[in-house]
Nucleic acid binder design. Structure first.
Length: 953
DNA sequence: CATACACCCTAG
DNA sequence: TTAGCTAGGGTGTATG
């Protein structure tokens, strides 16, 4: 009997706050809020509240209500009532059905002689009572009293059992500069800091009250040591003599408090007053801190070695996982993702889609409109077909081939059936299309609405792996230059990764439409079942046959996201990205590019005893710097071959070649003290020491990334198993992207560790290399030197030059370009490399960043028509414009019929100008399948567009 | 009607 | 609290 062990929930459920919740709500709003506590008012401080918070208060109040409901249900529901509700919530489903959803049963585990291994995907943190006994023997580190942080890793064993590992005893810490005169101040410092933290907690009001009132600790600053073997990564300093405090605190939320205290000022009796002290690594998420220190990567394999862990019995389990274990952090081991540990566990993926019965002309509202169907597609990573496909319906529904149909008369039973399904199927990943912003929040809100009349729904929101813990949601705004401003609902389902495919598509593919329909058409060549949303209500109110039609549609919508994931190797690629960069997989979904580089940097620094400063945000460093160069284009229609020479990974190779790094950067004063032969000066007049003096961390990271990429590409080529091939491809892709984002990290002025001298040096070298390349080619490929014509660089952008060698055929251009690339490579330091990849023939160069041409990689046949920057590749042009321009380009480049293209344009314009507008509209409307409105706009735009173009000719 | 500027989206 | 970078074409709108 699985997952039904009565008893009470875990002993420390009462006052606990989930880590993700803490980050969301309390966070670090100016004060050390208590580690644990009941619902708390969200701070409304006027400062720094620039994030578009100017709408009404509804969202805010709603969230507070959310908090209260969550707290009430998670903590205050009497255990007996909870157990009773929990048990009765699945009784509408028969045992055989449940069995068909379930994970494989757990083989016997001999904890003394067998290790416990899992591939983990999700992690969170809680605070709870200190573990009493270390299963491995020895002590349990951490605060002697009060609440301590506990990390919970969730994953899957090699045979497919779900596992939760509770990791105890890891203590948060940070570093801070320690003046030389404070040597020997450890004990005094610790006491002063501890007193200050206690006073702070007092002053902040007894917010940590709640269930934890009696367990509050007086040990907040647990220890301080002085370390002399470390250096700041920022700047090369020949004679460092740097000393640092390493400060341990009881809970992670004290780290920012300590930082603030050190900045504001702290009297250390017997030594003096500290103030304006710079802290180091005080901005590292606690979970990441742990992973880095234990050398654990995201989505990797963990091992609890034999004899070091304890498996919890059914009655003491806090989760629904099949296996739940306790271990002290020192015993836990992370495996490098190599050999057998590069494989993927049989992870379970649940793709879900819901249908709601909205009122005509209204978007469904959870407060009013019922959920009528929930379709599910459950798959196991590595298997070709889903293991379960089902649909849960409200009211009757005819059978569907290949899918279970479970019908319900009451909506609350439908919801509870789904909850039972989720708990039995126990997926590691929840996916779907827009589930994070629509389906999941809708279900949660719907349950909140219905719970008043159907109290048994009190347990519905327990969809995660923690008992008596409800899924939560929160509105977030994520803003970045890369992704724009995006408003999101962040849904937390404890222990499962919510992997919504819509944001994935937004982030990874530039498309003109992101509807599931067009995305499926694009990547799967497959359309949705077409049921217009306006008829959903009618179908629901119709016959069993009507509802069947709706269900088929619903199932398809659950199936397609999974098919997309498979087709695009989404999971494999994300797992590899998590492994390469070392961040938890959820970070890849909810955070930006910076955290990945930051993670790699922290890891490498640890090996080199370097510390990363947490610099004050308000430094008015010159925010902007000069970027790449674009060679003035010689605009023309070239009817002879134009060869393209590209630098391979230009910016990473510059950083490697010139040893550009935080740790090699010389200040003006340091430079005076060094012989000129020991450093270089970049074209932007910054100086960096040579690798012989000190090898930079960033170049080191890049060396390793690119070496690993070579291996991955080799392994990919050698692999026979398609899964293995996909893994290696995902890895080489991840490695390439990671290498390319290092430069961006240094130039990110609002980031963890911006360094404009590095970024501007990189671009200045880039500009130099490009100009040198142009000069070399134009100097060495001349009639004077035996060529048939003088070579001419007609265009170039950032890392490429377009060369006209003056030969008439692609076949003749290729060896010349090949040779030129080799010769240019020789004039630059390794690993900078110029490559020849393609020839354009013919080539239409319209302007900077706007050109088109037939692309050749072999002499016998062109590969495709390649277009850059023109209307055809821009998503802000209507389809008609794109189509007309595309036709023109084809006429010009493929047919080489310029008069024909002009004639065609004239024809289109004439049609639009003369009173045939309505006829054109009709034709266009039909051709595009769009509304007349849109086509009208299209026609207008096309008219203007083409008229302009004709004027230019 | 010229100019400046915000905005969008792309190149790399 | 959190967010890779700059260069640059083209459109639309405000302003004198």
């Amino acid at each position: 009997m699985n997952g039904r062990g009565g008893g009470r929930g875990g002993s420390n459920n009462g006052g606990n706050r989930n880590w993700k919740d803490q980050q969301k709500r309390g966070g670090s709003n100016n004060g050390g809020n208590g580690a644990a506590g009941g619902p708390q008012k969200r701070p409304r401080n006027g400062t720094g509240n620039d994030g578009g918070d100017n709408d009404d208060d509804f969202g805010e109040e709603f969230l507070e209500l959310e908090d209260q409901i969550a707290a009430e249900l998670a903590a205050d529901l009497p255990p007996e009532e909870y157990e009773q509700l929990n048990a009765s919530s699945t009784e509408t489903i028969n045992e055989d059905t449940k069995l068909s959803w379930r994970r494989p049963s757990v083989p016997p585990l001999d904890v003394k002689n067998e290790s416990l291994t899992l591939q983990w995907l999700d992690v969170d943190m809680t605070v709870g009572k200190r573990l009493e006994k270390n299963p491995a023997g020895g002590r349990v580190p951490g605060a002697p009293s009060g609440l301590v942080p506990i990390l919970r890793f969730y994953g899957v064993s090699p045979v497919g059992n779900s596992v939760a590992v509770f990791v105890h005893g890891f203590t948060p810490y940070l570093y801070a500069s320690c003046p030389a005169s404070f040597m020997g101040s450890e004990a005094s410092f610790r006491k002063a800091m501890n007193d200050r933290l206690l006073a702070d907690r007092q002053r902040g009001g007894n917010r940590g009250g709640g269930g934890a009132a009696g367990t509050e600790s007086n040990d907040l600053c647990l220890g301080a040591s002085i370390e002399t073997d470390k250096r700041s990564i920022l700047g090369y300093v020949a004679d460092p003599n740097q000393t640092f405090y390493k400060i341990y605190v009881a809970t992670p939320n004290l780290v920012p408090t300590v930082k603030r205290v050190l900045e504001d000022g702290l009297e250390v009796p017997g030594f003096g007053r500290l103030h304006g002290v710079l802290t180091f690594e005080s901005n590292v998420p606690f979970v990441l801190r742990f992973m880095i220190d234990k050398d654990i990567t995201g989505a990797g394999w963990l091992e609890c070695p034999k004899g070091t862990y304890r498996v919890r019995g059914e009655r003491e389990k806090e989760s629904h996982c099949q296996i739940e274990a306790d271990i002290v952090y020192e015993s836990l081991e992370g495996h490098r993702p190599e050999g057998q540990w590069s494989k993927l566990a049989p992870l379970r993926i649940l793709s879900t889609d819901i249908e709601c019965q909205g009122r005509k002309g209204h978007f469904p509202e959870a407060e009013k409109d019922p959920v009528i169907q929930i379709a599910n597609c459950l798959t196991v990573q590595g298997e070709r077909e889903p293991i379960v496909q089902n649909v849960l319906t409200l009211r009757g529904c005819l059978p569907i081939v290949g899918a279970q149909v479970l019908t319900h008369e009451k909506e609350e039973d439908l919801l509870l059936s789904w909850r039972a399904f989720v708990q039995e199927a126990d997926p590691d990943i929840l996916t779907g299309y827009n589930i994070a912003n629509f389906d999941l929040p809708y279900l949660l809100r719907r349950a909140d609405t219905l719970v008043k009349r159907a109290p048994k729904l009190k347990v519905f929101k327990e969809l995660g792996r923690l008992r008596r813990t409800l899924a939560t949601m929160k509105d977030t705004t994520f803003q970045s230059s890369a992704y724009g401003k995006r408003e999101n609902v962040e849904t937390t389902v404890h222990g499962r990764v919510v992997f919504d495919l819509l944001p994935y598509m937004f982030r990874n593919h530039k498309l003109s439409s992101y509807s599931l329909n067009s995305v499926s058409a694009e990547f799967l060549g497959q359309q949705k079942e077409d049921v217009h949303h306006s008829i959903i209500s009618d179908l629901q109110n119709g016959t069993d046959e009507d509802r069947r039609r709706l269900a088929v549609y619903c199932i398809k919508d659950a199936l397609l996201p999974w098919k997309l994931m498979e087709k695009l190797s989404v999971l494999v690629n994300y797992v590899e990205m998590a492994r390469v960069t070392g961040v938890p997989m959820a970070f890849l979904l909810t955070r930006g590019q910076q955290i990945k580089v930051f993670s790699m940097l922290l890891r490498k620094c640890r090996q080199s005893a370097l510390l990363i400063p947490n610099l004050p945000k308000n430094r008015q460093d010159e925010g902007t710097y000069e970027g790449a160069t674009v060679i003035e284009p010689k605009k023309a229609f070239y009817q002879d071959p134009i060869a393209t020479l590209d630098f391979a990974s230009l910016y990473p190779s510059i950083m490697q070649a010139f040893n550009l790094c935080y740790s090699t950067l010389l200040s003006r004063e340091e430079k005076q003290a060094l012989p000129p032969s020991s450093y270089i000066t970049t074209p932007s007049q910054e100086s960096f020491v040579k690798p012989s003096v000190r090898k930079g961390i960033l170049p080191l990271i890049l060396d390793e990334l690119l070496a690993a990429r070579k291996r991955a590409k080799r392994d990919m080529a050698a692999a026979t198993d398609p899964m293995e091939k996909a893994v290696q491809n995902g890895r080489q892709l991840a490695l390439k992207i990671s290498a390319n984002s290092v430069y961006g990290f240094t130039g990110a002025t609002v980031g963890q560790l911006p360094c404009i001298p590095i970024a501007s040096s990189v671009t200045s070298y880039g500009r130099d290399l490009l100009y040198q390349t142009k000069a070399f080619v134009e100097e060495h490929y001349t009639i004077e030197k035996g060529c048939s014509a003088n070579a001419e660089v007609v265009y170039g952008d950032t890392d490429s030059v377009m060369v006209r060698f003056g030969v008439p055929t692609v076949e003749e251009a290729m060896p010349l370009a090949e040779r030129a690339a080799e010769e240019v490579t020789k004039i630059f330091p390794p690993p900078i490399k110029l490559e020849f990849e393609k020839v354009y023939f013919p080539y239409l160069l319209m302007n900077k960043k706007r050109y088109a041409g037939l692309l050749w990689t072999r002499p016998d046949k062109y590969d495709k028509l390649d277009t850059k920057g023109l209307e055809t590749v821009r998503r802000d042009n209507c389809l008609l414009v794109r189509r007309v321009i595309d036709t023109c380009l084809r006429k010009i480049l493929i047919d080489r019929d310029v008069p024909g293209a002009i004639g065609y344009c004239k024809h289109v314009i004439a049609e639009l100008l003369q009173n045939k507008m309505d006829i054109s509209l009709l034709v266009i409307t039909k051709a595009l399948g769009k509304s007349a409105d849109e086509s009208g706009y299209a026609a207008k735009q096309a008219h203007v567009e083409l008229a302009m173009r004709m004027k230019k000719r």
